[in-house]
């Protein structure tokens, strides 16, 4: 079996409760670019139970073909049945590239599959490209907390696999009426269920995901106390945005982890990111520096956040924010008048 026998860009489609996760659409978008560079097709690999009606959505977002493994064993994610299914799909279809979301599912599944297939896996990539001349697949990821970037290749093994963090790649504009070839692929799961899911507990609050927000007002340790997060909430409401935070506030127990921006939190790139009392550790910068416009307010003029900010304000955030919020409200009212 030679390397040339492996063909096509495959995307593992993550669905939870039969709803496709956003990162999977983002990966289909990127997969289309890669497939174009290689002159090949995009295949979505959809694993789950009673999921076949999701195929048309995958077609609209860029899948040329959908391989469906539909089985009760795949109803709720557990490692082994999913790894087994991916292993069988890879063995049968021999993809050149397989992409996964760097989610709590993808970061468990992909390494397990890589060890089974005995191929390379590059984690948490922020850039994927095909070299024009050599057609080599290049995967770039942050290392060492985010400052050093490393470009990784997988020259002698197939498939070449990567995980990509949600929010990094762009979805395609959906093409209405697009269709994809659907292939049902049967897998025997006998002996492949080695854990039991006793209970599934969903987070109580259904909040907007900060990754979907166009405007983020983000607070750090410099906010002083959890009560001061209300100042951020007020500003976010006035701007029509959401509140996020740095890791320090999560560690201090001020806010929930799901709004944490950074290397160990979420990668965001809103149109506007307002960093309030955030010093800007490189781990934080790694998660937000691609925002379109960054405003930073910090009392320490040497804070690293000012190095990535388009507009930096040296001053007391708790004094500035209420005044700013009032002005925003006034400006919005004037605009809507």
């Amino acid at each position: 079996m030679s390397l040339q026998d492996y063909k096509g860009v495959f995307v593992f489609i993550q669905q939870v409760d039969n709803k496709i996760s956003g990162v999977s659409f983002e990966l289909l978008g990127k997969a289309n670019e890669l497939a174009e560079g290689l002159g090949t097709e995009v295949t979505a690999v959809l694993l789950g139970y009673n999921v076949s009606d999701l195929c048309s959505e995958l077609a609209r977002f860029g899948a040329d073909r959908v391989i469906v493994v539909d089985d009760k064993a795949l109803e709720v994610y557990t490692t082994e049945p999913y790894a087994h299914a991916m292993d069988k799909v890879i063995a049968e279809y021999k993809p050149e590239i397989v992409l996964y979301g760097a989610t709590a599912i993808g970061r468990d599944l992909a390494p397990r599959v890589s060890a089974r297939v005995k191929t390379g896996l590059t984690a948490d990539c922020t850039k994927l490209e095909i070299d024009d001349e050599t057609k080599q697949f290049r995967m770039t990821r942050p290392a060492f907390g985010g400052n050093i970037m490393a470009t990784i290749v997988c020259p002698e093994h197939r498939p070449q696999m990567a995980t990509v963090r949600p929010g990094v790649m762009q979805k395609m504009k959906p093409v209405e009426g697009a269709s994809a070839k659907v292939e049902n692929f049967k897998v025997d799961f006998e002996g492949h269920q080695n854990v039991e899911v006793l209970e599934v507990v969903k987070s109580v609050v259904e909040k907007m995901d900060i990754q979907d927000a166009k405007i983020l007002v983000s607070g750090g340790r410099g906010m002083g106390c959890p009560e001061n997060f209300q100042l951020l909430r007020d500003l976010a409401d006035a701007l029509g945005g959401e509140v996020s935070s740095s890791r320090a506030c999560v560690d201090a127990g001020w806010v929930e982890k799901d709004i944490q921006v950074g290397q160990t939190g979420k990668t965001v790139r809103p149109n506007l990111y307002i960093a309030c009392g955030i010093s800007g550790a490189i781990q934080h910068l790694a998660g937000m520096e691609d925002s379109d416009v960054i405003i930073a307010i910090n009392k320490d003029e040497n804070a690293p956040i000012f190095e990535v900010a388009d507009y930096g304000i040296v001053g007391d955030v708790t004094k500035i924010l209420p005044l700013f919020t009032e002005k925003v409200k006034a400006a919005m009212a004037a605009r809507n008048a």
């Binding site: 191929t119 290049r138 050093i148 970037m149 470009t151 990784i152 290749v153 020259p155 002698e156």
Partner: peptide
């Protein structure tokens, strides 16, 4: 299987 092709400072 993987190789570092290059590293660079962002």
């Amino acid at each position: 299987p993987t190789r570092v092709f290059q590293t660079f400072t962002k």
